[in-house]
Amino acid sequence: MSAGPFSKRDFGQNLGKVLDAIAQAVQDIAVLLRSSSCGETGTSNTFGDKQLEVDIRADEFIFERLQESNAVATASSEERPEEIPLGGQGFAVAFDPLDGSSIVTANFAVGAIFGVWPGDRLLNRTGSEQVAAAYAVFGPRTTLIVALPDPGGFAGQVVQEYALVEENGAVTWRLIRDDIHVGERKVFAPANLRAAAENTVYRDLVSQFIVDKYTLRYTGGFVPDVHHILTKGGGIFLNPVSPSAPAKLRLLFECAPLAFIVEAAGGASSDGRTSILQLAISSLDARTPISLGSKDEVKKSLRCLAN
């Protein structure tokens, strides 16, 4: 595996190798999305989601790269939701290989999500135990956003963005934004909007956003909607529920890693009662309502999430 942007940095315990494996897998998937069929396979994963050919191949690429790193003891994915031993030592990785595959055939931006925990297990952990998390955006550009230990030696995490670029005939990762922060902006992305038919608190909140002249930025993809918040410096993604529109986003594979990144950037996350990072991952299929983004905006969403 070729050296990536993280392997030469001293994170301790080979975390750089894991992050480089993720970066290489993202590069593999970027090529895959440009050149392969996005047709359905006729199969579904354990959760009942229809699988595309690119879902399965992206999943394979990531498992292969993680195993090659020799630094991953256990991995699990949304396509293969079981704790699979990979023979390495140091970390457990959970990932969604192609988040938003339902919109990939419309040629919308899609993503991949990764959470990295120390040790060899994922169950009965919390998101706060992650040592790093990342997501990739596959759009006009391929970018990788990473929350990782502060390379300056200070406490906490730093959030950085890398872009896949061609330099001197070679494809490489270039750091394009360092120390990303989430502030306050009047932008909203209302997911699971069908829940507003029964969840009147959610419906009232969306109406208030409109009255207050918030900007709507919603693609139908979790990753690009959260990425817009980090790119523009604020806003909120919210996914409340109702009796007939239950939670679909998975705590382990989607919510915990993205919450880790947003909170590392100075934002907030909640399920209506507590930070997403405090929720115990009691099963690989655990799901949760969620809001992510600017602290003040997340506070406004608490009642509709707990409804």
Rank of each mutant, 00 (worst) to 15 (best):
1 M>A: 14
1 M>H: 14
2 S>P: 15
3 A>C: 09
4 G>H: 01
8 K>Q: 15
9 R>D: 04
13 Q>P: 01
17 K>N: 14
17 K>M: 11
24 Q>N: 12
29 I>Y: 00
29 I>R: 00
32 L>W: 04
34 R>W: 12
37 S>G: 12
37 S>N: 10
40 E>C: 05
40 E>D: 14
45 N>V: 02
45 N>F: 03
46 T>Y: 13
51 Q>A: 10
53 E>Y: 13
57 R>T: 07
58 A>D: 02
67 Q>V: 02
71 A>M: 11
73 A>R: 06
75 A>L: 06
75 A>G: 08
77 S>D: 04
81 P>Y: 01
82 E>S: 12
84 I>R: 07
85 P>I: 00
87 G>A: 05
89 Q>F: 10
93 V>L: 06
94 A>G: 15
94 A>F: 03
97 P>I: 00
99 D>L: 03
103 I>T: 15
104 V>R: 13
105 T>E: 11
107 N>G: 07
108 F>C: 12
109 A>L: 09
109 A>R: 10
110 V>S: 09
111 G>S: 12
114 F>L: 08
115 G>P: 12
116 V>W: 04
118 P>V: 03
118 P>Y: 07
123 L>E: 08
123 L>S: 11
124 N>P: 05
125 R>H: 10
125 R>P: 11
134 A>W: 02
135 Y>W: 10
139 G>D: 15
139 G>C: 09
140 P>I: 01
142 T>V: 10
143 T>H: 03
144 L>D: 03
145 I>D: 03
149 P>T: 00
151 P>L: 04
152 G>A: 12
159 V>R: 06
162 Y>V: 05
165 V>L: 09
170 A>K: 14
172 T>V: 15
176 I>N: 07
177 R>A: 10
179 D>K: 12
181 H>D: 11
190 P>F: 00
190 P>T: 03
196 A>I: 00
201 V>C: 15
202 Y>K: 04
203 R>G: 15
206 V>M: 13
207 S>N: 13
208 Q>S: 15
211 V>C: 11
211 V>L: 12
213 K>P: 08
216 L>S: 09
216 L>W: 04
225 D>R: 09
226 V>W: 07
226 V>I: 15
228 H>L: 08
234 G>A: 03
235 G>T: 02
236 I>K: 05
238 L>V: 13
239 N>L: 07
239 N>Y: 14
245 A>D: 13
245 A>W: 08
248 K>V: 10
250 R>Y: 09
250 R>S: 07
252 L>E: 04
252 L>S: 00
253 F>S: 00
256 A>V: 05
257 P>F: 02
257 P>I: 00
257 P>V: 00
259 A>T: 03
261 I>F: 09
269 S>L: 01
274 T>H: 10
274 T>K: 14
279 L>Y: 02
279 L>W: 02
285 D>M: 08
291 S>C: 15
295 K>R: 14
296 D>V: 14
299 K>F: 10
302 L>C: 11
